Simulated assay, not measured.
Amino acid sequence: MKRRKIVIFNNGKDVKKYDIHATDGNIGTVNDILIDDQKWTVRYLVVDTMKWLPGKKVLISPMSIKKVDYEEWKFELNLTKEEIKNSPDLDADQPVSRQYELQFGNYYGYAPYWGPAGLGNWGLYATPGELVQNTNPNVGVPVEAGEESHLRSFKEVTGYDIHAIDGRIGHVEDFIICDRTWTVRYIIVDTKNLWPGKHVILSPDWITDILWTDRAVTMDLTKEQIKNGPEYMPMQDITAEYERLLFEKYDKPKYWE
């Protein structure tokens, strides 16, 4: 059976170029992306509201995105400007806490994506749309004191060192994101320490260790494996054939099987 070709944003930097449109007008542009470091899934777009709400940044969940317009470079939301304007205030200088996430979700009537525990990246579901469709409004879950949200900024993670089992190979340059599940499907790595001027893509599923304080990620691959793996040309389409070759070269289980 032929596998359906996955639809992917070219890279995370492209996402940051998109405008955000409420049902009644433009509210600003994407300033950053917040990634869940456990599920490697985009949880929020951080939006700079610019002239509309000067000095204020707001979070937009993929659960609020109705449509991605690739030609016009914009996200169309199922929210009004008034709804967004009255959303819980975000302290741009502080990490997003789990308590804030609950407040945010309860305001929009979204169930928490981290509970109940399930196989999907969005609670029991694979996509944010499915979670919204099955949400019980005003649902809440207990949060332990000091519980972490496990959110990492795109700006923060970009530039992290990437290590093979036997040494450093380069650094994180970008991400490839699936626009259906909002999963970080691949990390784009500049292999300047191993293969100057060339790039590879590696799956977060192959990560064996992350040292956040050292800004370092270790992959379950050797330098030789990566050097002999498929090269990635920035902005190229990720076809089913390319993915098959990638996983076979690295001898990794295929996520689509």
Rank of each mutant, 00 (worst) to 15 (best):
I35A: 00
L79D: 03
M235A: 14
V47H: 13
G55N: 12
N121P: 12
D36T: 03
V200W: 09
Y70M: 13
A164C: 11
Y242H: 11
Y44G: 08
K2W: 14
I169M: 04
K198Y: 11
K66E: 04
L45Y: 15
Y18M: 09
G55Q: 12
P253C: 04
D161H: 15
I33V: 07
H199S: 04
L90C: 03
G140W: 15
K2E: 11
V58M: 02
E144N: 14
S64A: 11
K252Y: 11
W256F: 06
N31H: 14
I27C: 10
V141A: 09
L202M: 10
Y125L: 05
Y186G: 01
T49H: 12
D24H: 01
D166P: 08
H171R: 14
G118F: 00
R215V: 07
I162H: 06
I210H: 04
P116D: 08
M1C: 06
H150N: 03
G115C: 12
W256V: 00
D93G: 04
G229V: 13
V141L: 13
V47C: 04
I20C: 04
V217Y: 09
F9I: 01
D19F: 15
A111R: 03
D69K: 00
I207S: 01
S61Q: 07
N26E: 14
I84Q: 02
T239F: 03
Y242R: 12
I201W: 13
T183Y: 08
T158E: 01
V7A: 12
M1F: 06
V68F: 13
L90I: 06
I27Y: 13
T80F: 06
E82L: 07
D174G: 08
V46A: 00
W256Y: 09
Y232H: 06
K252Q: 13
I207M: 07
Q94P: 10
D19S: 08
W40M: 09
K81H: 07
W122P: 14
A22S: 07
R43I: 02
A22T: 03
K227V: 04
R244I: 09
P116G: 03
R215F: 03
D93C: 01
A111Q: 07
Y107W: 07
G105S: 13
G146S: 00
Y107F: 04
L124E: 12
P95S: 03
S61M: 03
D166A: 01
A117Q: 10
I188N: 06
I84D: 04
G55I: 03
T181V: 10
P253M: 07
K192N: 13
W52L: 10
K198N: 08
Q38I: 15
A22Y: 06
H163R: 10
P137M: 02
E76W: 12
P142Y: 02
T29E: 11
I210C: 01
V143C: 00
